[in-house]
């Protein structure tokens, strides 16, 4: 089953939020999902501890750099979609996880700093593709975006597209409900109402559908 790696060497780019939103939406749509918490900050484990896990979701924690390839392979074989959440640093753990990916998602806020650091992950993927002799599909995910796009976001998007980088549409917007997932656990359908709940659910579902489409394309 496919492995989605969520990677950016910048902290605060929205990796764990992307992982939880994507994982819970894919599970809601019918997939069995395993979330691998490879971040020493244990964001996924904290989310998992807040409430009973939603149906069809499993979480594996405390994965070390030396074990990451083996653990991904173990779960890659058991018929579930695997989503790997990594720490926001440039580490060997990141490169090893990328080597096992069917799709790498690179979350970034629409800022020049996030884009500059995100591009380093894209460059690493390109070099791993060359070293390993296989294509590793990847796409940028804009996170914490606003309803009205900033000039900066438009500029960054245009620049990435010119370089042939895929961008997941829609982006994950700035939503109270997304951050509340880490307060209450569970999924967007189980947490108490937060702001524009319907908007958050629609955004999350459309985002997960777009990632699913990207993944299917990568597996062709």
């Amino acid at each position: 089953m496919p492995v989605i790696v969520v990677a950016s060497s910048k902290g605060g780019a929205g990796k764990s939020t992307t992982t939880v939103v994507l994982g819970t939406e894919l599970a809601y749509a019918g997939a069995d999902v395993t979330l691998l918490d490879c971040d020493p900050n244990r964001s996924l484990s904290l989310w998992a501890a807040k409430a009973p896990l939603p149906e069809r979701i499993g979480v594996v924690s405390d994965i070390t750099e030396s074990a990451v390839v083996r653990v991904i392979k173990e779960h890659d074989a058991d018929g579930r979609i695997v989503i790997v959440d990594l720490e926001g640093i440039a580490s060997r753990m990141v490169s090893r996880a990328i080597s096992q990916a069917d799709l790498v998602l690179i979350p970034m806020r629409a800022t020049v700093l996030d884009a500059t650091i995100g591009v380093r992950s894209i460059a690493l993927i390109a070099e791993e593709e060359e070293a390993l002799g296989r294509n590793i599909a990847h796409a940028v995910v804009f996170t914490m975006t606003r309803a009205i796009r900033s000039k900066q976001q438009n500029g960054i998007e245009a620049s990435l597209r010119r370089q042939g980088v895929s961008i997941i549409e829609p982006p994950l917007m700035e939503r109270a409900a997304f951050s509340a997932l880490f307060e209450f656990g569970g999924n967007l359908r189980s947490i108490p109402e937060q702001g524009n709940m319907q908007g958050a659910i629609e955004n999350a579902a459309a985002f997960a559908a777009a990632v699913y489409g990207e993944l299917r394309g990568a597996l062709q």
Partner: peptide, 8 residues
């Protein structure tokens, strides 16, 4: 390749 990119 990772080390050359600073992924240590």
């Amino acid at each position: 390749v990772a080390e050359a990119r600073g992924f240590v």
